[in-house]
Amino acid sequence: MRRILSFILVSVMSIGTIFNTAQATEYPLPPEGSRLIGENIIYKIPDDSTMDLETIAAKYKVGFYAMLQANPGIDAWLPKPGSEIIIPHQMLLPDTKREGIVVNLTEMRLFYFPKGQNKVIVYPIGIGLQGIDTPLMTTSISQKIPNPTWTPTPSIRKRYAAQGVTLPAVWPAGPDNPMGEFALRLAYGSGTYLIHGTNADFGIGLRVSSGCIRLRPDDIKALFGKVAKGERVQIISEAIKVSVEPDGRRYVEVHEPLSKREGEDTKTLPIPLNQSVKAFSTHPNTDTALFEEQYKRRSGLPTQVGRL
Rank of each mutant, 00 (worst) to 15 (best):
3 R>I: 11
4 I>F: 01
4 I>N: 09
5 L>S: 13
9 L>S: 13
10 V>G: 09
16 G>L: 07
17 T>F: 05
18 I>A: 12
18 I>M: 12
18 I>V: 15
19 F>E: 15
22 A>H: 07
25 T>W: 00
26 E>M: 07
31 P>A: 10
32 E>F: 01
32 E>Q: 14
33 G>Q: 08
35 R>I: 00
37 I>R: 11
41 I>E: 09
42 I>K: 13
45 I>S: 08
46 P>V: 05
50 T>D: 09
51 M>P: 01
59 K>S: 10
60 Y>F: 15
60 Y>G: 07
61 K>T: 09
62 V>A: 06
69 Q>V: 00
71 N>G: 06
73 G>C: 02
78 L>T: 10
79 P>K: 11
81 P>L: 04
88 P>G: 12
89 H>C: 06
89 H>W: 04
90 Q>M: 13
90 Q>C: 09
91 M>I: 03
91 M>D: 08
102 V>A: 12
102 V>F: 06
103 V>T: 10
109 R>N: 11
110 L>P: 04
110 L>V: 08
111 F>G: 09
113 F>E: 07
114 P>F: 01
114 P>K: 10
115 K>D: 13
118 N>F: 00
122 V>G: 11
125 I>D: 05
127 I>W: 01
129 L>G: 04
132 I>N: 13
134 T>L: 03
135 P>A: 11
139 T>R: 06
141 I>C: 10
141 I>Y: 04
145 I>L: 09
148 P>V: 06
148 P>S: 10
149 T>S: 15
